[in-house]
């Protein structure tokens, strides 16, 4: 593998227009988004900036589509040596590590508010004097249902986490079912992989389709839960720290599931087109790694956001 020959074959692509225009797309997208947010905050109409952002997004998406198509074409044309494929493997692995750290920041924030900030504001612990003097009526309980200042941050009526440890409760507890769904989907994507390696294309397509379906169901349930949260529980982004951490963590996770489902759907299309070979299917493998990662994050979420 790491022979002298493989070095000779390392494919250094010719000039490419893709990244430069991707940068343009990216900067239009974020600039427009920023301008739109500012307009909305200033209570002005954000039409122009929204269009700028959409233009950037479209350009970026188009380029990324081209980019992946090019890579796939090159691979099919046999330009990619084993060594180059290993570069993709390393690339994906370290990308997932960066995602882990992104979520770590939010989990860290949750840990901090639960163990330090909220107790201090509630008059407990090392800096409990803060609560005693400044927030005498605030009591430290998690989830925070009554905010230190509920004129600025309206209280939610109820929390969305586990209330009692009984079968009856869990049977009606959406996040519990979502956990089952995602864990199952991790298993099904693994079956798809096994089928792929066994050159069982039908199995691959079926299991992959099941995985995508599970992803969609998960998203559907999650959307349902958000509607419940906003409508019935009064749990919103601006309902204090519990809503803040809840929506940031589950929201970014949901965003990643959306992306993962989309990627798996693309893989499904590619599987149907017969792109993958038992010994050459890193696109699929990368997608499945990503999916496993998204699942692991959910398990963490389920434990730290919903259970304890």
């Amino acid at each position: 593998m790491a022979s002298v020959g493989s070095h000779e074959n390392y494919y250094v692509p010719e000039q490419t227009k893709l990244p430069f225009f991707a940068s343009i797309g990216l900067v239009f997208m974020v600039y427009g988004l920023g301008a739109a947010l500012n307009d909305m905050k200033a209570a002005e109409s954000a039409t122009a900036s929204t269009w700028i952002s959409l233009f950037g997004f479209t350009l970026l998406s188009f380029i990324i589509f081209q980019w992946f198509s090019t890579v796939i074409r090159e691979n099919h044309a046999g330009m990619n040596s084993d060594q180059l494929k290993r570069s993709y493997v390393w690339g994906m692995a370290w990308f997932i590590f960066s995602e882990v750290m992104f979520f770590a920041a939010f989990f860290g924030a949750l840990y901090y508010v639960r163990n330090f900030a909220v107790p201090w504001l509630g008059g407990e612990g090392d800096k409990g004097i803060s609560g005693d003097m400044l927030w005498p009526q605030f009591a430290a309980v998690w989830p925070v249902i009554e905010n230190p200042n509920d004129a600025l941050f309206t209280n939610p009526h109820e929390a969305l986490n586990v209330h009692e440890w009984s079968i009856a409760f869990f049977a009606k507890f959406l996040p519990f079912w979502n956990t089952l769904i995602l864990i199952t989907s991790s298993v099904t994507v693994h079956f798809a992989h096994t089928a792929l390696k066994a050159e069982n294309r039908k199995g691959l397509i079926q299991w992959l389709a099941v995985t995508v379906a599970l992803g969609v169901i998960f998203l559907f349930l999650q959307a349902f839960e958000y509607i419940e949260a906003y409508g019935h529980y009064g749990l919103t982004l601006d309902s204090g720290i519990y809503g803040s951490t809840f929506f940031l963590l589950t929201g970014f996770h949901g965003f990643h599931v959306t992306l993962g489902t989309f990627i798996l759907a693309v893989m499904l299309v590619r599987a149907i087109k017969g792109h993958f070979k038992p010994d050459d299917h890193f696109g699929f493998e990368a997608a499945s790694w990503y999916w496993h990662f998204v699942d692991v994050v959910w398990v963490g979420l389920f434990i730290f956001v919903y259970l304890i």
Binding site: M40, P148, T236, S244
Partner: peptide
């Protein structure tokens, strides 16, 4: 915090600037 009303860094909502 700026655009969507969360309170990560605001004690009034249970957050903490030190976070």
């Amino acid at each position: 915090d700026i655009h969507f009303g969360t309170s990560f860094f605001n004690a009034a909502g249970g957050g903490d600037p030190v976070l």
